[in-house]
């Protein structure tokens, strides 16, 4: 078992979900309609639950600290999430496009990992790939409906898509263990995930008036997987961990 490669993989999965889960929770009470308020709050709960499942593997199988310590005490430079998930929510169109770009990739990761040669992660991924279908359904439904509706909706979504595509491409930044993970049958690798992701998002976008900027000529925003982040991440961590840090040993 290749522990450093597995840790790298599990941290990026867990950190993406924790950070996006926190961003989704910021829609609680602010959603444009009640159903969307509930949807983003529910997805927040799911994503934080999913991150817990991966932090638990890091703790129980790979000797890392307990999930709360991992979630709340690391500085931003030790987070392996993509920069896509740490950006502030912006307006609803921005959050919706991020949700669409992120979850269509996440479901492919879970599908791939459910076949992993590393059994503990395969079990977790098998469970989570059923749950994430609802996130993908939600994103694709809203994108299809709004992406072919009014001029303002289309303009806003297109502008967010243009802004977020470079960050979304950054999700597929390769790990330094990429070749080993693929050779050991642990993970299909970022390039394979990205190819499938482009196929799926193009299928959905084809039902709308939105245009995907050319991914081959768009420079990805890299660095997140290696601890390079925007200042937004440390601010998010400070807020998320404020209560925990008041009394780290407290029994809740």
């Amino acid at each position: 078992m290749n522990a450093p490669a597995l840790k790298d993989l599990l941290f990026k999965l867990a950190d993406d979900q924790l950070v996006l889960g926190h961003r989704n929770s910021e829609w609680t009470g602010l959603g444009p309609i009640l159903e969307e308020d509930i949807a983003f709050s529910s997805m927040a709960q799911d994503k934080i639950g999913h991150s817990l499942a991966f932090y638990t593997l890091l703790h129980e199988e790979l000797g890392e600290q307990d999930p709360d310590t991992l979630a709340f005490t690391r500085p931003a430079t030790e987070f392996h999430n993509s920069q896509l998930v740490e950006l502030p929510n912006g307006e609803y169109d921005f959050s919706l496009i991020r949700h669409f770009l992120y979850d269509n990739a996440e479901i492919i990761r879970f599908e791939s990992l459910s076949q992993s040669s590393y059994t503990p992660v395969a079990k977790v991924a098998t469970k989570l790939k059923g749950e994430i279908k609802y996130h993908v359904l939600h994103a694709n439904t809203w994108l299809t409906n709004l992406g072919s509706s009014t001029e303002e909706a289309i303009l806003r979504l297109q502008s967010s898509l243009n802004e977020l595509l470079p960050y979304a491409l950054g999700m597929f930044e390769q790990s330094k263990y990429e070749a080993e993970l693929i050779a050991d049958g642990i993970y299909s690798g970022e390039e394979a995930i990205k190819t499938e992701w482009l196929k799926r998002i193009k299928n959905v976008l084809a039902k709308t008036d939105l245009q995907l900027p050319d991914p081959d000529t768009t420079a990805p925003v890299l660095g997140g997987r290696y601890g390079t982040h925007t200042p937004h991440l440390q601010a998010l961590i400070d807020e998320m961990s404020e209560v925990f840090k008041c009394d780290p040993g407290a029994e809740w």
């Binding site: 159903e35 509930i38 949807a39 709050s41 529910s42 997805m43 709960q45 799911d46 609802y134 359904l137 939600h138």
Partner: peptide, 13 residues
């Protein structure tokens, strides 16, 4: 279906 997300994670509206 109004929403795949309801009052708890296991319910849709």
């Amino acid at each position: 279906m109004r929403s795949p997300f309801g009052p708890t994670l296991c319910r849709s509206l």
